[in-house]
Design a binder for these strands. Structure first.
Lengths: 215, 215
DNA sequence: TTGACAGTTGACCGATCAGTCAAGTAAAGT
DNA sequence: ACTTTACTTGACTGATCGGTCAACTGTCAA
């Protein structure tokens, strides 16, 4: 009995699911309403426009994963571990979405933000804001790493931007190719971008030919 | 008088311009026809569907820049120079499109491919093909570099994929933020990704504070 | 001269788009 | 008991979507 009226949440959930699993184009007001089991009149009781709902759905979803980001990027974790963890987190999330949605979905912010003309101010602005916030996590981790000597270089901001662009590019590639491979070893690309030697093979003494698992 | 009937070309041009400058959603059949100065009936005389036209427009545009790619990635050019040149080429192209379209447009293949549900087989398939072809240029250059010792590492394919993802991510970021900055120094990210030292500052003795241009 | 045919035209189709609205329900506030 | 308020509903609008069609035009070949 914690919540009797969850209409708004159902709309936000349905919208984000359509945005992420399908596309901005697939997330029509009618489709969102049908998926949420809500009539269109109710939709416009809670949101003044479709743009409004889309922006709210992106924001709500980001807020829901933010605690996880705060945990992963905790200052109590060594900077390189934060990077390893976020790469693994992104990979696992894509794997989970693949099972649930039946396809690789990539990053919703890049997909949605990239698929609107800049005129759609509200939506693209929201994706910009969220991605800027995500960038800060990377920037802080890299700056901490540079401070403790675990990461070479001095310009944490520029390094974070490059790493972020690489990750987003890999997510987009995974979506377009409908293939998890681009996001399977994000840490290798991230470490290379930062001028770090690649991680030793995961798992202790995992038999000889680790590289063969590629095939 | 070389061409009396350029209707098909006008449709392809108009379509690609809308796809690139605006979005897949903005490239409606009506909008394409209006921009091309062609009636819808004629459209369907040349193309059997909108998907058909979009795929053809993407392919046609790629074919039109292919000679430039072949020149940039010529085997007669040192591998590192090929990478420098393609980064500069992409930057200049984005700059030119910015002037022409009034905004940063990014990579049309990533934008279009990322903004359709995988169901749109034809279109997403075409973007996949084109991007796979582009990847081969990078792969060859990197393999040549690894062969002559100018690039460290052994797995040219994996390195090319990482570099490609980074470049695409930067193009997408530039589009979403409507800002050229992410594509202004692609070579730095590319070189870092390949484990290379950054290029020395461009231009001989370009006054002291090169880094100040950032602000 | 007459077809044949590539190309063009504008009217038209049903479906779907985002968004509106008046009427209704039900619970909370007075 | 009465009103206010939050929410729901289904029918509706005009615009636009992708796509069709029969009729028309010009050109070139037989």
């Amino acid at each position: 009995m914690v919540k009797v009226n969850d209409t708004k949440e159902r709309l936000l959930d349905a919208a984000h699911q359509l945005l992420w699993d399908e596309s901005l184009a697939a997330a029509s007001v009618d489709a969102i309403c049908e998926k949420a089991g809500v009539k269109k009149g109710s939709f416009y009781h809670f949101f003044k426009s479709k743009e409004d709902l889309v922006a709210a759905a992106l924001e709500a979803k980001f807020q829901s994963v933010k605690p996880e980001l705060d945990r992963i990027f905790s200052s109590s974790v060594p900077p390189l571990d934060r990077l390893r963890k976020i790469c693994d987190f992104l990979h696992q999330m894509q794997r989970q979405k693949l099972e649930q949605a039946g396809r690789v979905v990539g990053c919703p912010y890049a997909s949605v933000g990239g698929s609107c003309s800049s005129e759609d101010g509200t939506i693209q602005g929201k994706t910009r804001d969220i991605m800027a916030t995500q960038l800060k996590y990377l920037e802080t981790a890299i700056r901490d790493g540079q401070a403790d000597g675990s990461i070479p270089g001095r310009d944490a901001r520029a390094a974070a931007e490059s790493v972020f662009d690489f990750i987003e590019g890999a997510m987009t590639a995974a979506r377009i190719r409908n293939d998890l491979k681009p996001v399977q070893n994000l840490d290798r690309g991230v470490f290379a971008m930062l001028g770090l030697p690649p991680d030793p093979l995961p798992g202790p003494a995992k038999a000889g030919a680790g590289a063969k698992a590629r095939a």
